[in-house]
Amino acid sequence: MTDLAVLSGAGKRVRRAAVDWTGIAFLAGLAVVILLPLIVTAVWAFAEVWRFPAIVPQRMGLGYWQDTLSRNDVWTALWLSLGITTTVTAISAAICFPAAYAFARLDFPGRNLLFLAFLSVQAFPKFGLIVATATIFLTLHLVGTFWGVVLIQLVGTLLYMIWIPVSAFQGVDRRLEEAARDVGATPMRVFWSITLPQALPTLFAAILITFVSTFYETDAAWLIGLPNVRTMPMVMISFINNALEVQYGAVLFVFLWVPSFLLMLAARRVMGADAFARGLGG
């Protein structure tokens, strides 16, 4: 059992120097499953002709890179996307985290029903809502504007930003909170020094998921953004959808590796097992 192996590794934390065989096994497995498709895609970004049964492309070149990156709209779209995504994530965190705390801890009328209702953000297929949504945005003159896209994408984040943090506040060990209160800590103090640190990794998971899924969201962006607002994935998808040349997609994909990788390192820092354990004194 992998689980057993993992746990026995954890049990003997003193002997860190031992070779991390479990980790190497995971690494090898993931390398094949995750990395291989990515590498193949990356090689396609440089391939001009690559036909079966050749193992490497018959002709390589940077032609598709030039075509893609010399386009102004790619760069404009990238900055625009980062702007929209950051705005959406920040507003969403500001309004949703307090709400999630309330859903997890406080008692108020209609709580369970309202909580369940957030499901409809993702569970009801978008096409059924297009006309109604478009009507609202048209009357507000938000079609084709930055804030229109921000608003519609903000709605799309509600489910993640409420449901995931609720599980975090729910999982906080109440005995610690009570102990703190018993020794005379104020409720605010308990929240900042006990509740929040315990919930933090999950809150960051929610932010990360929201950021990435908002960045790549297109359904709502098409409906409200066109013709003026064109985000990065909109450009990307119009490049690769029904395009015969796989290369455009591959180039944009490699192009997005850098920001993604930085984000992931940040994620490791925040969610990382060791950093967190130290915070808990575990």
């Binding site: 297009i130 006309v131 109604a132 478009a134 009507t135 048209l138 079609v143 297109t218 359904d219 098409w222 409906l223 066109l226 909109m234 998808i237 119009s238 959808n241 029904n242």
Partner: peptide, 16 residues
């Protein structure tokens, strides 16, 4: 407006 679904959404918007 590729894919087609994007254009369909814009047309629904025009209908609205």
């Amino acid at each position: 407006a590729r894919p087609q679904a994007a254009l369909d959404a814009v047309v629904q918007r025009a209908l609205a």
